[in-house]
Design a protein around this nucleic acid. Structure first.
Length: 343
DNA sequence: GAAACACCCCGCCATC
DNA sequence: AAGATGGCGGGGTGTT
């Protein structure tokens, strides 16, 4: 079973350096076809299109690019374009939204624009049924991808050469990202910010978007994702307890006691809610905390390991390399803030 | 990087 | 009868 939130696919060190230092201002362009769903359209606008230069300066340059001159999207709204399709050719990240009719062939000029962007190594992102457009463009052949669960069968039968993974929220393969339905667009967009600007920046965006589960008064400093959308009370309480005790050794047995469940049932609940095992989730929380500490503090890697519950620096390095793709120090060099003694 | 040990996961089956 | 839960054990994974 693959992780629903496929955090194993972290960027390589080369990618990190390039992402951080290669461009003064990142350009994101979103292609909008007629009938594009409002929610999915709004997510990239909210994440990339809102000026958040107080989090990271410069913030993204974001453009909406309707595929037609006056593109009417869902619910009767008309995309008030600030960019034309030409802008796709200049973007570092090209986002393709879902289309009204997944059975229709996408317009040729859109396919051409996507292929062209891919050839010049732009990051290509298909949100929800946008995966159909990417598949039409041939970008998903023999690659892992996902789409809305309602379209899985249709997608699989029409694009048999794509390795479809219906269990993940989003997936990346060779610079091509696809996300599952609707709300998964948020997860994917935040992941893109995380790759570009680091975990602290992505978590701050998430916090401002009031992402669950931290709706209570004591907002956590770092977003501990993934969390289940609707965990039952005992499970949520156990997970909350983990969040505030990451510096200490925690076993699955501790979780079973806090959740008042057997080990077997706990694993089942995690699997149903998140698609990951308790241990995988715990490790993810520790790594996210470690990432935040590396970004925002100057403390030695050994202390980062201790505070994040990773135990030893060697263990932290091991998992960092495996899941984030770079060493802790390389990560700090790339994403460290002035508070961490960098930049 | 390898090895040893501890811990974890999941298919299977029984029980509630 | 169907679904949820829990125990077992072999194989897998994490930690040192």
């Amino acid at each position: 079973m693959r992780s629903r939130c496929d955090f194993r696919r972290g960027p390589t060190s080369g990618k990190l350096a390039k992402m951080r230092k290669g461009l003064a201002k990142r350009r994101v362009a979103m292609a909008v076809q007629p009938g594009a769903p409002i929610f999915e359209l709004s997510v990239p606008c909210e994440v990339f299109g809102t000026n958040r230069s107080d989090i990271h300066d410069p913030w993204y340059e974001f453009e909406v690019c309707p595929t037609e001159s006056a593109t009417e999207v869902a619910a009767g709204f008309v995309a008030n374009q600030n960019g034309s399709m030409d802008n796709l050719a200049r973007a570092d990240t090209v986002i393709i939204l879902g289309c009204e009719n997944i059975h229709a062939k996408p317009p040729a000029h859109l396919i051409d624009a996507i292929r062209s962007a891919y050839r010049r190594r732009a990051r290509i992102v298909g949100i929800c049924s946008g995966a159909f457009v990417l598949a039409h463009a041939g970008l998903l052949d023999h690659r892992r991808a996902t789409t809305h669960w309602m379209h899985i069968d249709e997608f699989a039968s029409r694009f048999p050469t794509v390795t479809l993974d219906p269990s993940v929220l989003y997936v990346e393969d060779a610079g091509v990202f696809t996300s599952a339905g609707t709300a998964a667009a948020i997860d994917l967009c935040l992941e893109l910010v995380r790759q570009d600007l680091g975990a602290a920046a992505a978590n701050e965006v998430a916090r401002r978007m009031v992402m669950p589960p931290h709706r209570d008064g004591g907002q956590a400093q770092y977003l501990r994702w993934p969390m289940p959308p609707h965990p039952d009370h005992d499970l949520a309480e156990a997970m909350q307890w983990v969040q505030t005790n990451l510096d200490r050794p925690i076993t699955v047995e501790d979780l079973t006691q806090r959740a008042h469940l057997s080990r077997r049932t706990l694993i089942r609940r995690f699997h149903d809610a998140l698609g990951v095992t308790p241990q995988q989730w715990l490790l993810r929380q520790r790594l996210l905390l470690a990432q935040g500490l590396l970004e925002t503090t100057p403390i030695p890697v050994q202390q980062v390991a201790e505070r994040s519950g990773m135990g030893t620096a060697a263990n932290l390095r091991h998992h960092f390399s495996q899941h984030v793709g770079v060493s802790p120090l390389a990560y700090r060099r790339t994403f460290g803030t002035p508070a961490a003694g960098h930049l």
